[in-house]
Nucleic acid binder design. Structure first.
Lengths: 144, 144
DNA sequence: CTTGACCCTGCCACTGGCGGCAGGGTCGGA
DNA sequence: TCCGACCCTGCCGCCAGTGGCAGGGTCAAG
């Protein structure tokens, strides 16, 4: 099977497959003309990779699953290493989410205050340039 | 004031200040020797930039606030354009958070299943104590 | 005169998973 | 014989905000 067919049946692009290969996640024989030649296990492998990626792991994480990528990862007995990786990644996700939630809350609060201030200050013609003539070039080197 | 001093009083690095300048967010006079020479408003400006960055905006967003960066952004009457930018960024943050939460939930579910399967497979003496504490991962070389 | 602190420009690296392009080779069918 | 589909390698770009380095200039104090 060549790269195009594998891409079709796995639902990813040839570009991705080459990327996975470059990352050492999949391998392929080479035909005499240099074309990659995949066997049927490649599809399973790629689907497993996608499954792990979709679960929030990185390609780097996936590399740790190499030994079992040819089996049914979803149904396989979980390896301690795999679980550990998953937990680490989960922690990363959690902290990243928490950070972004904090940022969002700050922004939301700022906007809330701004909205409140707006109501008050709409009596005054807010001299912030952007208000009256949004299309006008600012004194400074401006763009929008 | 030269870049080092401005960096000190604003709490960011000279590197960042040069970056902001390259992005068109701050400006400086130049001394005869080529050194940047900032006036005292620069500190306010930089602090405003940091404030907006901390609120979750990007440097690109901040550019839209140029006309009012010299005032007290936090207390200033908000411009509609600024609010609009904030709302857009808020929406971006929201969707990004939602996506990551979805990923996290998938991963958590997978780990949950794995943990369940593990109970069966606990004939192997594996370090799965981690499973019990999904929020408290292995405090090792782990970061975002 | 020398040291050392500071400044300058400009460029690469990083994260992460590709997209896209350039420039070329290979192959089957009309 | 030519077209078009497919394949190859290799490199840049993206998002964002720096960190870090190279290689140099400037200046005041010792």
């Amino acid at each position: 099977m060549r790269i195009g067919e594998l891409a079709r049946i796995t639902g990813c692009t040839p570009r991705s497959l080459r990327h996975y290969e470059a990352q050492g996640l999949i391998a392929a024989e080479r035909a005499v003309n240099g074309y990659r030649d995949y066997d049927e296990r490649a599809a399973t492998r790629v689907r497993n990779i996608r499954r792990l990626l979709d679960a929030g792991l990185t390609l780097d994480d996936v590399r740790l699953f190499l030994p079992c990528l040819d089996g049914d990862v979803a149904a396989a007995a979980p390896s301690p290493a795999g679980v550990r990786v998953g937990l680490q990644r989960l922690a990363v996700l959690e902290s990243r989410i928490a950070a972004q939630v904090a940022v969002r809350d700050r922004l939301a609060a700022a906007l809330h205050d701004a909205a409140a201030a707006c109501v008050v200050d709409l009596e005054h013609p807010v001299g912030l340039g952007l208000v009256a003539v949004p299309g006008q070039p600012d004194p400074r080197k401006d763009q929008a």
